[in-house]
Design a protein around this nucleic acid. Sequence first.
RNA 1: GGGUGGUUAGCUCAGUUGGUUAGAGCAUCCCGCUGAUAACGUGAAGGUCCCCGGUUCGAGUCCGGGACCACCCA
Length: 1077
Amino acid sequence: MAKFLEISPQPNYKEVESKVLKFWKSQNIFAQSEAKAASKGEFVFYEGPPTANGQPAMHHVLARAFKDLFPRYKSMQGFHVTRKGGWDTHGLPVEIAVEKKLGLTGRNHGATRAEMEEFNKLCRESVFANIQDWNTFTERMGYWVDLEHPYVTYHNDYIESVWNLLKRLWQKGLVERDYKVVPVSPRIGTTLSANEIADGYRDVNDPSVYVRLPIRLGTMPKALKAELEHQNVSLENLENPALVVWTTTPWTLPSNTLAAVNAELEYVLARSPQGHVIVAAGAVERMSQLYKDLPPLEVVARFKGSVMEFLEYHQPFPESFEELKLEGKAHFVALADFVTDDDGSGVAHEAPVYGAEDLALGRQYGAPLCFGTDKNGIMQVTEAKGKFFKDADKDLIRIMKERGVMYHAGQLLHSYPFHDRTGDPILYFARPSWFVRTNKMRANLAAQNQKINWYPPHIKDGRFGNWLENNVDWSISRERYWGTPLPFWKSEDGDLHVVGSIKELSELTGRDLSSLDLHRPFVDDITFDLNGKTFSRVPEVLDVWFDSGAMPSAQWHLLLEADGSAQRQENLETFKKHFPADFICEAIDQTRGWFYSLHAISTLLYDSPAYKNVICLGHLVDEKGKKMSKSLGNVVDPLPAFDKFGADSVRWYMFTASEPGDTKRFSERLVSEGQRGFVNTLWNVYSFFVLYANIDNPNLSNAPNIEQRPEIDRWLISRLEQTKEVMTKALDHYDARGAGKALDKFVMEMSNWYVRRNRRRFWSQDGTVDSSAYATLYEALVTCAKLAAPFTPFLAESLYQNLVRNQDSSSPESVHLCEWTNFDASRCDLNLISEMNAVLIVVELGRAARAKASLGNRQPLPRALVYARNSSDVTALTRLKDVALEELNVEDMEFLTGVTYKVRPNLPVLGKTLPSDAKKLMPQITAALANPEIAARVAENLNAGKIETLEIDGVNIELTLEKVLIDAEAPAGFESALSEGFLVALDTNLTPELKLEGLKRYLVRMVNQARKDAKLEVSDKIELRLELEGELREAAQEKRESLALETMCSSIEFGEPEAGDFVVALEDGGRLGLTKI
RNA sequence: GGGUGGUUAGCUCAGUUGGUUAGAGCAUCCCGCUGAUAACGUGAAGGUCCCCGGUUCGAGUCCGGGACCACCCA
């Protein structure tokens, strides 16, 4: 057998990993893994595209660790996995980055065609500004993804596929134009995203006005009329009856079309200083306080909000409808769930064009849209026409006072969003917008969702399911510049034509447009004639979520209409092969992002989910549970962490630290714990193996068959098989953590039990090499490398190269090209595993007993007395007696008899077998068994195989060995320990021989410590001189041979150390000296 | 305001269908062991299982109510 490469027991993971990276690169291992024969077909994975112009951060490591693991696993299992990279390149983040670079603050950079052209050019250039960082990051963490052929959302091919998709939606009648309320920065008239407003909230003083809306008595709904009559209210005697509404935005009052009440709330008719008013019952007290010097509101009738529906009123600015030439039914009471009586009057003023909920309500009641301002916030109606909306408040309040409809005008300090770049208050404003009618497909969206396996499962009917249930139509248009232009062409009179490909557009225009850049402004120049009308493009671009949601087809440049070209046909085949995905994985914020856009598009077009399994990760937070953000300064950069701990340790942490769906805390300290637990332990076993294999040069191919190896070897192999089984099952259920924990447990046992117990077998004496031990540990290590490959690809590769590839050049070139090792039941002796568990418990107890007796493990003891609860454990301990004896350093083991017993009911078992009325007797049963005489009788009879019956309260309780727990108590005079039905007692009477042996072991330890301190190699031989008195001298003389053997010592002399010896003083005044020879 | 998840040792987390003395790793201390090991072993210390109520012979676990944290939506 060739020598293994020598390795350091304390590796520099940065070096180890960079060596592996070089190897992967030079041998094209990733490409090979993509190219290798796949017996099981395709495992479909979709890469969720990151925004390339951001910086890679730790949360990308989290997602990518999982996105890497399953493809690696499936590939080893014999699937082919296409791992096409992708980049999200359009949209606001890019535009904002460019705006910042240009120093544009609130200027409308799309005002002219030339400006827009320049702006989009800069956007395109900036998209990949950080691409180098991404490439470095991707490679360094060992994330295998094809970055040479990624899909890029701004490429013409991609856009064309998205157009094609939109056309198909249009043909299905799922595209329509409507209004949508969006936050707008007035003056520049730009739509803002939620992120842009999030930081802009400020506390400001705004008007707080209560306005009277006189009711039209003649239109009073019957239900309300009946209520009032029932409560003896005479309509004729009412004084100026009015609804009172409350608002902090008087400038929206001219746009009022409805007043809203909550159907379930209680409302009242009350006498106020200004006549009769209708307000919420919960607002009476508050409104009485408005005029403290005047009498409070006096309730004259009470009724539910629902009876007021369709009650009409006079709105304070009737001129709005005239000036805007509006028609249609408006100015009546509508019912709305969102109305509360927590503030104001409990009656909401509705100006639908200035609020999302209000718009929906207005639509529901069919009220016309009244635009009191334009999108730049300039008033279009009333005397205040031409004023900026915020400046109009004063005039409008004055007018309302003049008209006698102002109930009360005050001020209110509240928080309101401002646009930080212009300083203007945000205007929420209904803009024409394009929608995909997902709401119509709501039932199917939910049905398709039921086919998806969500990890964690609660997302399915929780966050994602709820989101689908409350689905509203998907607003797909944005009034921006850098994005996929909507392929919507409109004629002047409103006819719509959706273009599905460049070829189609070429045919429509009669020009070859195959080299047209599909972005604005170029595409805006294209017009065509159809049906005698001229069509030009609508100005909007597409929501970027639609871009990424289109990737299943757009990444393959799918154009559905066959045109006879081989390329189109091939793309279609490729798409079919890669749809739907078997697996995707992103963080939980994508439930409303990519998870949704994939799902919606796929449901609408293909009547299928887009993915079958999805891991939805929790967010990464800092050590204290705080969100990682630049402003808090708690961001951990991935690259330095990779260098410090190794990418493997960071990955390992991501898999094993907590459930994937839980919020995960991250810090260097936590990563280093995982490193010490798993990565270092595996490495240590590996380095142990290499160290001794290189000395002993075992012939592994000549090792005995598994069946002929010692039990401890078969035990390790059995545990190895068991680990394979658990891991495979876990990974098949996308349970990375479960698989990782199983591997971790195995590595711990291999190190702390197998290697520790068998150290001496790897240390050949008189030239006999224990090839069983070597073959067993070798197999365990190689298998660990394969099992760890998807988790810690560098470590796995490193082990594999040295242990396998360097020995056998016919083996696969990389661990990642190996087959996944499958469970082999014939090699897994479950019985042996449980027997070993019994030994482990007994050893543990023996050590505890030693500790109680203050007897160090080096002192051999004559006898251990063991009690085991059941006979199979007795068999096990008898078979594996030697292991226990050696580990406990005792000469003999006997089974205890004559113990006293403690008996308790085995509750889970007994509870199930008792009839329900007898279960109440449980406390009495426990009490009865606590009686020593009953306990002794029950224990002895049950142990003898008889069945015992207890009579309690006239009920016969039949007891069997399974239904009770019997513990033994040690006879007096022994140190003992007790657990899980086992008892271990130690006989601490030392014979002179045992004493000498203990002393010898002390000497061995001192000599070996001295060798270590003298920096000798393991294989160095020494001369030893011992200057000893009394017992120690006697022990050294008596045990001279074994002392020499265990210290690699060729000669022992008794006397003073010589000059040049490495000298160590001993406890009792003696000295030892040694010299290397 | 609505939704989802969470709350168990100083820290990070397990805890299966309700059942025995609620566990592991890390950290601390004592002792021990050690020629792979920066490792390991024994023991100690550390818990009102967030709170209140209910169901039950029995609740960390099931039910109801509440508090707090995180995220999403409004």
